[in-house]
Amino acid sequence: MKAAKFKYIRPSSLDEAINLLSDFGEEARILAGGQSLLPTLNMRLSQPKVLIDINRLDELQGISHEGKHIRIGALTRHVDIAESDLITENIPLISEAIEYVAHVAVRNRGTFGGSVALADPAAEMPACTLALQGTLVVEGPNGRRQIRADDFFHDLYETARAPEEILVEVQLPIRRSGESFAFMELSRRKGDYAMAGLACKATFQDNRFLSVRLVYFGTELKPTLGENVMSQLEGREWSETLAEKVIASLEDDLDPVDNLQGSAAMKLHLQKVLTKRTLAEVVQRLGNV
């Protein structure tokens, strides 16, 4: 199927892009990597009037070390994340997770910002951004503002970004000593969106969790914190029995729905399995920190 007609424009500055977005309003869509947008256009599932191509905006490029965080420009391609030493050294969770993102041709084109802004509930990068307590920088007609990842993901494909705002960059805190991470995902085939997935950040002392953050994806409408499980882990001494015990309360954190991949019961079960495995993994890694 061929895309329905639309107009195309390629602004040469971020200001221009924001003005265009304001002018066209809901008729316009931002075209970043296009790896999620173009399929919906080619299937005529979405028929915007105008595409605003931001691919050549230099302001949105690049990965840099800025104080206590790493800044990832919204247009940074997945391939550049995967190949970045700055990321590998400072944000190991992202390095681990990026391996699960799609396939080479899509990674060459798809962008970090596009993925986070779209907020696909089964995507890896939004979950990691939430797990890492990143900060999202958006810019609109009223200027720039920062949104904490905790406040960003609202519902299915709904985020705190206003329609006339563009995601400019994501700031991810540099790993601190004592922190450990683990990432696990189940998908039927390499590169598919997750059926169930879990991104974890934890600190540990004397065999006890000081803090732990568990972000579930692939089973909910948005990347979701496992708050009940987290609170039951914090301060507790690690054991497999503890893991076994806490996963029961995952039912209070998650509310999966049946879909093409399987039943809600299966999804909850898989998240429980991943929770056990991820906790065991992160603890083992903490031993090596």
């Binding site: 195309y8 390629r10 075209l31 296009g34 790896q35 173009l38 399929p39 080619n42 595409l51 191509d53 691919n55 391939v79 080479v104 041709a105 899509v106 060459n108 084109r109």
Partner: peptide, 18 residues
Amino acid sequence: SVRVDGVVVRGCLVLAAQ
């Protein structure tokens, strides 16, 4: 799959205009 600016991409997910 075709190569654009040195890397392989999905040709159906890139506009000619781009």
